[in-house]
Design a protein around this nucleic acid. Structure first.
Length: 271
DNA sequence: CTTTTGACCTGACAGC
DNA sequence: TGCTGTCAGGTCAAAA
């Protein structure tokens, strides 16, 4: 479900409820997430004060003096701050109960998400160490994108989904950015010229920033931590619009199957 | 090394 | 109203 804008929106939403607050205990109702929730999470996070809430790629990092909780929402995960007494739903697998009487509640029906714990620098964690640059930093430049795509035969859509190339871009924003840059998702990455890489890098930044500004994309179950849906879905140009008229030229949007995942594009606006 | 495929799960929806 | 098949915002590990 959540890509960079949804994770960023979640971070911003939960941060005021967590920063400077003590985690009094951790309730794990179902530890069987993508990776089994470690015993050390409850043991070492309990009693700690959350110092910072940050994001790296699609991971949320809750920093304390004893270590860092590393959260990932997978495909269907979401975080809400609710009263600790509120009865949990079927998919509410983990609560971080706060001394304030609230709790940070992780809901994840498909259980592709995770909560890990590390005492070390989280950025050096195995899952984070090889992730590429954040797309909203200068490190993700047109020159970088041009350089890393050289000699690659993979479809550019798939390259954008590769976290080692760029962090946080998922299927919605990859497709939307490619439309914005006028590039077909099926194009071999190595065939993009310098001008196209410039357009694409710009399009990725602009698309993500705009999505963050409107609270992300709510297609089915994603909601911000306060329960509000995002609004980016109202302005989607291609994602999920197979057969619908292109918002620029009215040509029906086409669907391509890249691997197991759908890619959407306008056959006229994108080459 | 790069690229592709399979695997992990539940729930919503379309069509019969 | 069921049942079956398809699809979904991610990403790791293994195979090719």
């Amino acid at each position: 479900m959540p890509e960079l804008p949804e994770v960023e929106t979640t971070c911003r939403g939960i941060a005021p409820h967590l920063i400077g607050k003590q985690v009094s205990r951790v309730v794990v109702r179902n530890p069987a997430l993508r990776w089994r929730v470690p015993k050390a999470l409850a043991a070492e996070l309990s009693g700690q004060v959350v110092r910072a809430v940050t994001r790296r790629a699609k991971y949320i990092l809750l920093t304390t003096d004893a270590g860092t909780a590393i959260l990932h929402l997978g495909m269907s995960g979401s975080l809400r701050v609710v009263a600790a007494a509120k009865p949990p739903g079927k998919s509410d697998h983990v609560d971080l109960v706060l001394a304030t009487g609230n709790c940070l509640r992780l809901r994840d029906p498909r259980r592709f998400g995770s909560i890990l714990w590390t005492r070390q620098n989280p950025l050096a964690h195995k899952l984070l160490a090889d992730i590429g640059p954040e797309p909203l930093t200068p490190e993700f430049s047109r020159d970088y994108l041009h350089r890393v795509t050289r000699g690659r035969s993979r479809a550019i859509r798939d390259v954008l989904l590769d976290a080692r190339i760029v962090a946080g871009v998922g299927n919605i924003y990859a497709n939307e950015a490619l439309f914005s840059a006028g590039i077909r998702p099926t194009r071999a990455a190595g065939r993009l010229n310098a001008i196209e890489c410039k357009k694409l890098a710009q399009a990725i930044r602009a698309t993500l920033k705009r999505a963050i500004r409107v609270g992300g994309t709510t297609l089915r179950d994603y909601h911000a931590s306060d329960g509000e849906p995002g609004h980016f879905q109202l302005t989607l140009k291609v994602y999920g619009r197979t057969g619908d008229p292109c918002r620029v030229c009215q040509t029906p949007i086409r669907l391509a199957r890249l691997g197991q995942r759908s890619a959407f594009f306008c056959g006229k606006c994108q080459t």
